[in-house]
């Protein structure tokens, strides 16, 4: 699929629904799942570090710092 989007592509303020996480790195995947990045959850890019990376995500009423590279396996659907 050419139009498949992943979480690292989002811009500040954008919201998205998580579809699934790729299996490339099981340890990283488990960590993201544990922090609440599961199928169907809605995330928003709340802040971006002054140096461009990491991200601050808002999900499940809390904030999570992640690097772009660490969420590139999270497939999403951008919400309007």
């Amino acid at each position: 699929m050419s139009d498949m989007q992943t979480l690292d592509m989002l811009k500040i303020g954008q919201r998205a629904r998580v579809l699934r996480i790729n299996d490339d790195n099981p340890a990283l995947k488990q960590r993201l799942l544990d922090m609440g990045i599961t199928t169907g959850v809605i995330v928003r890019i709340d802040k971006i570090s002054p140096l461009g990376d990491p991200f601050c995500l808002e999900l499940r009423n809390y904030r999570l710092l992640v690097r772009r590279a660490d969420v590139s396996a999270v497939e999403i659907e951008v919400l309007p």
Partner: peptide, 9 residues
């Protein structure tokens, strides 16, 4: 070697 950074704010 790369290690992730995932942390609550």
């Amino acid at each position: 070697k790369y290690s992730p950074f995932i942390q609550e704010l």
